[in-house]
């Protein structure tokens, strides 16, 4: 059932993605506003900032897009002027590659450890203990009576 649901949801989402209209100039500009940091207000992206330089940069972005520049070219232009700190997301290269690589690695390691611990505990839980041996045949009889099959089956 899980696979069916996933497939169905995947299809629906795909349908949603396919019918997307091409973004307007303003939508593209607003996407860029969110990817660039206002140079004088730490941590605030252009769309969050009310200071003059952010307004000027927003206007510049719209002018450049209207003139036919690509998003990448506009970003490169600002990086040229202010350095990579103008990018709200660090580039996936050089030293800042670590900011992208470390979280998935740590999360994957955590997930693997969690899985291993639970599996180990479960193995111990399923393995019959000495005092259970003597009870085994009685519990088996109970299971037979109830028709629930083998004990310990998941």
């Amino acid at each position: 059932m899980g696979i069916l649901v996933a497939a169905l949801l995947g299809f629906i989402v795909l349908a949603a993605g396919c019918g997307r209209p091409a973004p307007t100039l303003e939508q593209r500009a607003q996407a860029l506003d969110r990817q660039l940091i206002c140079p004088v207000c730490p941590g605030e992206t252009l769309d969050q900032s009310g200071v003059q330089i952010a307004k000027d940069m927003r206007v510049l972005i719209r002018e450049r897009l209207a003139a036919g520049d690509t998003e990448e070219a506009i970003k490169a232009y600002f990086v040229d002027r202010y350095g990579t700190r103008i990018l709200a997301e660090p580039p996936a290269s050089g030293i800042s590659l670590a900011v992208w690589v470390i979280p998935p690695v740590v999360l994957a390691a955590g997930a693997a450890a969690l899985w291993a611990v639970v599996r180990e505990m479960r193995r111990r839980a399923v393995a019959p203990r000495a005092e259970d041996e003597s009870l085994g045949k009685y519990l088996g009889a109970v299971d037979d009576e109830l028709g629930t099959g083998k004990r310990g089956a998941p």
Binding site: I37, I86, L87, A88, E89, I95
Partner: peptide, 20 residues
């Protein structure tokens, strides 16, 4: 913490903000 680390390690040109 990452921007602090890069500040020590290099010239400190990394921003980690909302989109990340």
């Amino acid at each position: 913490v990452f921007p602090l680390i890069t500040e020590f390690a290099s010239d400190g040109t990394v921003t980690v903000a909302t989109p990340y």
